[in-house]
Write a protein that binds this DNA or RNA. Structure first.
Lengths: 112, 112
DNA sequence: CGTGTAAGGAATTCTGACACG
DNA sequence: CGTGTAAGGAATTCTGACACG
């Protein structure tokens, strides 16, 4: 009876055509932003790309930045700066040396 | 700034091939269950079906029922019995006679 | 640098139908 | 009733490349 905390936001199930519809970007742009390491779709057996809702949100952010004239290199730097909250907390914990303590007898951890 | 309360669970963005991967059902079965009014994918401009995560969960339920030998007709009846929470609340409101009050200054939606 | 486009091939999806049962 | 399959067509996706700038 476990409910996935990441919900469906990070499941890579959306094909590039739908991403185009949802973001308004061209296929060329979507693939190019992958080449520039801004997004990371997975591939299924046949090699076609699959995106998540998170990827789509990221692409919309990218599109906005690009409209402001920000280059892909700069966008990548900005995105790496904002580490996600969960990761931040994990990082802190590890630095505190409490990483092991936390997982010792608490196998069903609730991060929030 | 608004966060959708239905999250991404009901967004119809998944193609039938991915649904096959996620459910283990054949394309034939997935299309047939639609014909039997058990699921309701949307179509994009070109006519290809798009499913939501909810649809996938529904299909898994259907697959389980079918394995038990339950017929599609019976499955449909069972599913119609369990009305969803949101719909239940709307139903209550309508019965209370507050339906019109609720939509009074909001003429842009035509309920069914 | 970022994006468009034409090119050829491979994989996807669609519908209506026949089959079995 | 529920599902498989072959059939033909239309739409999708992929890659590498040339173009402009």
């Amino acid at each position: 009876m476990s409910s996935e905390s990441t919900s469906h936001k990070d499941k890579k199930v959306i094909s590039i055509g739908i991403v185009r519809e949802l973001t308004g970007l061209s296929l060329r742009q979507i693939r190019y932003y992958e080449e520039r390491k801004l997004i990371f779709p997975v591939r299924n057996e046949k090699g076609t790309r699959r995106y998540s809702f998170s990827d789509i949100e990221k692409l919309i952010e990218i599109a906005n930045k690009r409209e402001e004239g920000v280059q892909t290199n700069e966008i990548r730097r900005e995105m790496n700066k904002e580490t996600k909250p969960v990761e931040k907390r994990m990082l802190k914990e590890m630095l505190r040396g409490q990483f092991n303590a936390h997982f010792r007898n608490n196998s069903n951890n609730k991060p929030f």
